[in-house]
């Protein structure tokens, strides 16, 4: 993968100045490239990864993985029904997958009840939805390559040859 993208995936806060220093490219060229990535949709968005357990008032937030089996439609396949589903604000992620079901959703709500209600009143009644299976997340250990841990003690000695 291109250097600039790799650096930004690792830390989106890295400034163009810093990227220029790290890669030996001119600052202007780095800025131009980033702008292009933003415009052509290669870079979709910049956001922080938060450990929800560490955020005050956030402890009640629940997430569920929902497996959805759907009947594909003529001409548009799964895309149309997927769009109807992922447009709900409760749906944080939506994937089309191979295997025994079709869509995998990550759904967020303020309580188990709100998620259950979303499933029963919005998702399941949809015409093309054949079956759903809801799995509430109990703990997040690792997300998108990042391990969720409270700061660890430094193990290396401060100075060595």
């Amino acid at each position: 993968m291109e250097d600039i993208l790799e650096i930004l995936i690792n830390d989106a806060r890295t400034s163009a100045d810093e990227i220029a220093k790290m890669t030996g490219k001119p600052v202007a060229a780095v800025k131009k490239q980033i702008k292009q990535y933003e415009q052509d949709g290669t870079i979709v968005h910049y956001k922080a990864i938060i450990n929800p357990e560490m955020v005050e008032g956030n402890q009640n937030l629940v997430r569920a993985l929902i497996q959805v089996s759907i009947t594909p439609q003529k001409d548009v396949g799964f895309d149309h029904i997927a769009e109807r589903i992922y447009n709900f604000a409760e749906v944080k992620s939506c994937y089309l997958v191979s295997g025994s079901y079709d869509l995998l959703l990550v759904v967020e709500g303020t309580s188990i009840q709100t998620v259950a209600e979303f499933v029963s009143s919005k998702l399941s009644p949809m015409e093309n939805v054949r079956q759903t299976s809801t799995h509430f997340l109990l703990k997040k250990y690792k997300d998108d390559g990042r391990i969720f841990k409270v700061a660890q003690r430094q193990k290396r000695l401060n100075i060595t040859y």
């Binding site: 290396r156 401060n158 100075i159």
Partner: peptide, 14 residues
């Protein structure tokens, strides 16, 4: 160095 806390160390050979 070893005795000091909150040091940013660029002295480590590993």
């Amino acid at each position: 160095v070893m005795g000091m806390k909150d040091v940013i160390s660029l002295g480590v050979g590993e």
